[in-house]
Simulated scan of single mutants.
Amino acid sequence: MAEFVYPPVIRTAMTVFRALDIKIKIIGAENVPATGGAVLVSNHISYLDFLFAGLGTVKGAKRKTRFMAKDDVFKHRISGPLMRGMKHIPVDRTDGQPAYEAAVRALRAGEVVGVFPEATISRSFTLKKFKTGAARMAADSGTPLLPVILWGTQQLWTKGRPKTLTKRHVPVIIMIGEPIHLQPGDKPVMVTRRLRAAMTEMLDRAQQMYPAQPTGPDDTWWMPAHLGGTAPTLEVAEAEDEQEAAAKAARRAAAAEAAGHN
């Protein structure tokens, strides 16, 4: 089936990256399966991660990834048509089953489906707890998990920081690990632990080989606390996430109550 939206989006992104001299290094491109379904599992440190994770499969095996993303993005007047045109999969956070079933169908049809198992951006830039959905999708579709680690993308646009989409010369590492093939009887919880352990090791390697360091005291925010940066620790970041989720829930409840009175 012809792709009318995905190729120009990729070309546009690459043009912008070249103009900004974003120094992209892809490691492990040979690990992208040439054919067949696969669940691409990426860490999440930036609002742009789907672009870079998807770029890894395009460069690795000329394959396009269909990402699962919250349905709000599909309702936006600009991003909505693009997301639908690229055949990404909308997720309703109040009822994720239809999205799950759509993802399994896509995997069985031979597509690469992209998942962020942390669900939201990690403010600590370390791996948060993983949800088991990726492992369950791989088991239900009979496809492998493809671990992907991104590093450097947080410098461009991340949660709690202003957009710096015009920042130049930022190095970005895209590391693709060996596919993880499930065996009959593998439990999703155990597979998820194995996946997270593999991705933790990959993230450590990506951080060690990253060619840039903070330029001064005001530029340490993008470095994790355990590496001497001023990003919040995982525990502090999780507390901030909980506060934000509670505030959103309160706003939704207030809006629903106000609508009920109208």
Rank of each mutant, 00 (worst) to 15 (best):
T132W: 03
A247T: 10
V39Q: 13
T94F: 07
E101A: 15
T153S: 03
D95H: 11
H226G: 11
G36D: 06
S79Y: 07
T192K: 04
R252C: 02
P33E: 08
A254R: 05
V9F: 04
G37V: 13
A38G: 05
L165E: 13
R84I: 10
A253S: 04
P98Y: 13
V236L: 06
L107Q: 01
K64I: 11
M202R: 11
R194N: 10
A246W: 09
W157Y: 14
K159C: 09
R108W: 02
Q155W: 01
A29F: 07
P188Y: 13
I149W: 03
M68H: 00
V5F: 04
E240M: 14
R205I: 06
Q97V: 15
P179N: 08
I173Y: 08
A99R: 02
I27H: 06
A198L: 10
M14E: 15
A258G: 01
L20M: 10
A225Y: 07
V5K: 05
P90T: 02
P98Q: 03
F50H: 04
D71F: 10
G28N: 04
L51N: 02
V9D: 08
T120S: 05
V148E: 07
A102K: 14
G36A: 13
T166A: 14
G56R: 03
P144K: 12
H88M: 12
L156R: 01
P144Q: 12
E30W: 08
A245H: 13
